[in-house]
Design a protein around this nucleic acid. Structure first.
Lengths: 200, 200
DNA sequence: GGAAAAAATGAACGACGTTCACGAAAGAAT
DNA sequence: ATTCTTTCGTGAACGTCGTTCATTTTTTCC
């Protein structure tokens, strides 16, 4: 059974190398030749370990999502804290993670599979961490909503905050300047919380 | 001076071709050889008319932004309408435009210049249409904010709505299902409006 | 009309993702 | 241990891409 462990080790070295390259150079800087050189294997070996470069990116993204989930989990300000305080802490932690892992975090949302390809199931589930922790506080704030509506609202809430962070960190267009990001997101979360509470 | 008009005409044919390809196949489907074939010129002519493919994308994006600005402008529900109604109309029009021009709209946000390159000034200004029309209603709702704070808040408001639409239309991850998009965005805008009004 | 400048052309270049025929290594069978 | 078989690593080779460039064609100006 040593052949299997070697196989797994090579795959891990490749993911390590891809993660390093992705972190340093971003999605467009990820090259098969550079990754295999870093992993210490031949070019063709990559296609034996994983399907192709796209799948390698998904593996890195799964790692990033796991780290992001952990970072969000550790941000909790205690059970006694108010629901708004918990949401604010989540949003603040999201900003910290995004800024400290800019390229890896961007890869989560910039990477797209070619036209017909579908995201494999083992990766799809990893995205749950993005909304899991929102549901708790949201449920206490809106006990009137059904579970489906709650899930929907959690997705919307996350996407709203995410949009502001994304536009800002993409440094593009009409994005909020980096220095104002924390303040603006905090204000947005506060506004959404108040808007939720005043009937609706 | 006929050489100048020929020059301009070729450039326009190239932008036309690029727009068509972008609309049909998305950003990753845009190829120099296909574009020049459609425009009826040689491969090298592209680099005489514009700097490179990236700049061709920016030209298409400028067109798209102009059309988007017009679409948002025509969505106004009359001056007598409430501020919330105006914001809701803008958001609804944004969703319609994004869904009806999916690939062109996605190109606005997915396209990124290589590392060192800066967005040229003639294109940067075109993005103003994304927030221009938000400022009016927002200013009436929040007369307490300074002009700078208002601009900031407009950017944040746009980015929040944009984030929800983007995640949904990217059909990815934790995005809101397509069928619920209008409802969820309307709810988000409503929540933000109410949160703005209840002091803060 | 002819010299000089500009623009169009498409072959060529280098970089890329992916494939493939081949050789090495490992597992199973004798 | 020795063969057979299957699996895996290898890097040259392929097709595609964006971009460049020497050459040819067209335009401009005197």
């Amino acid at each position: 059974m040593k052949t299997e462990t070697k196989r797994v080790e090579l795959k891990e070295r490749l993911i390590d190398a891809a993660e390093s390259e992705l972190r340093d150079k971003g999605l467009k800087g990820l090259k098969a030749r550079e990754v295999t050189a870093l992993a210490g294997c031949a070019l063709g070996a990559l296609y034996n370990a994983v399907e192709d470069l796209d799948m390698l990116v998904l593996h890195v993204n799964s790692r990033t999502l796991a780290r992001l989930g952990a970072a969000l989990g550790e941000s909790a300000p205690g059970e006694a804290a108010s629901d708004e305080a918990q949401l604010q802490a989540l949003a603040a932690a999201y900003i910290v993670f995004a800024t400290e892992n800019r390229n890896l975090w961007l890869a989560l949302f910039e990477h797209r599979l070619p036209e017909g390809r579908e995201v494999p199931e083992w990766h799809r589930q990893d995205h749950a961490v993005l909304i899991e922790q929102i549901i708790g506080p949201l449920k206490r704030m809106r006990p009137d909503l059904s579970d489906e509506a709650l899930l929907l609202r959690a997705r919307t809430t996350f996407a709203a905050v995410h949009g502001v962070v994304l536009m800002s960190l993409q440094g593009k267009f009409v994005g909020v300047p980096r220095d104002d990001l924390e303040t603006e997101v905090a204000s947005l979360v506060g506004t959404m919380v108040r808007g939720s509470q005043s009937g609706g």
